[in-house]
Amino acid sequence: MALFNPPEHLSCHHYATHANSGWLRVDGSGQSSYRGMTEYHSILFCTRGSVRLAIADELWELHEGQMKFIPRGTSVTAIFSDDGELLDAYFEVVDFICDKVSLLQLQELRQEVAYDPEPLEVRGAIHSLLNTLKVYLNDQALCAYLHELKVKELFWNLRAYYSREELAAFFWPILGESKFHSDVISAFTCNAKVAELAERVYMSTSSFYKRFREEFGISPEQWIRLQSNKQILFLIQDYDLSIGEIASQLSFNSQSTFSRYCSKNFGLSPLQLRRTLQEGTSSEELLQMSYHNE
């Protein structure tokens, strides 16, 4: 069903308003991969099929009926199954609209809960909310006011159907996280130089080295290499992408530069790397191989 009298909706100022919270629907049948917007925090819901996710330095698989929180400033790539579908709830502020719980109160639980990065199962009326959102989005109901109300409704449901401990574990990545940590993740690009990363977060290289070791526990070079290798292993499994397209997406200057990087870090060319994965070698095994090539 289409909206009744679309010109009337389009003339409303809410349709012309830039929203700091809202909803996106991404259908894998029309595209095999999706790069999420990282300007805002997001909760990704798999509403059909399954979706493989590369979230910063982690690889995940999201199945129908599961959700995953993505902090602002995180690099996200999704590769869909044939029938895969995502709903992306994005927002600037985590707001439970409730006197009984707030983000500050969840921060107090941070030391008491173990961080569990596994996707969380969707519960209660959130199922109905997502189905309603799919209808709205399919009918091009792009009213900023409506989207904001539905994000608030989502947070009411989170408060209603999950314990504080579950919510603290779910939103753990932003509980007590330093600005430096989120700035580094936001500034990261594949195969970046340490000096480039330091410049992007407005620090001298020497200060960046010291702060980075304090926050991440390893050297910037080790971390950059690990994140770069994980991104390569994720994209190389998207067989719809050519090697040249992967090199471009990962910000390599040329396909030959990308090939040299793979040979140095994995001992394999990009095509050999893809073939090795097709033959059943896991990404984890290849990451271990890359450690020995340092």
Score class of each variant (00 low, 15 high):
F4C: 04
H9C: 12
N20E: 14
R25I: 15
G30L: 11
Q31V: 07
R48I: 00
A54T: 03
L59E: 15
Q66F: 06
Q66S: 14
Q66L: 02
I70Q: 01
G73S: 06
S75F: 15
D82E: 14
G84W: 04
L87W: 01
E92Y: 10
F96N: 02
F96M: 04
I97Y: 10
D99H: 05
E108I: 05
E108N: 13
L109E: 10
A114Q: 09
S128M: 08
T132W: 05
D139Y: 00
A141P: 01
E148C: 10
K150T: 09
V151Y: 12
R159I: 04
Y161H: 11
Y162L: 14
L175Y: 02
G176K: 04
V184Q: 02
V184G: 09
A187L: 00
A187F: 01
E196N: 03
R200N: 02
V201E: 07
V201Y: 02
S207D: 11
G217L: 10
I218G: 00
E221G: 08
I224L: 12
I224F: 00
L233P: 02
D238C: 14
L241Q: 07
L241H: 05
S242E: 08
G244T: 10
S248E: 12
F252A: 05
S256R: 13
S263G: 09
N265C: 11
S269E: 09
R274T: 02
R275V: 12
G280L: 06
S282L: 07
L286S: 15
E294T: 11
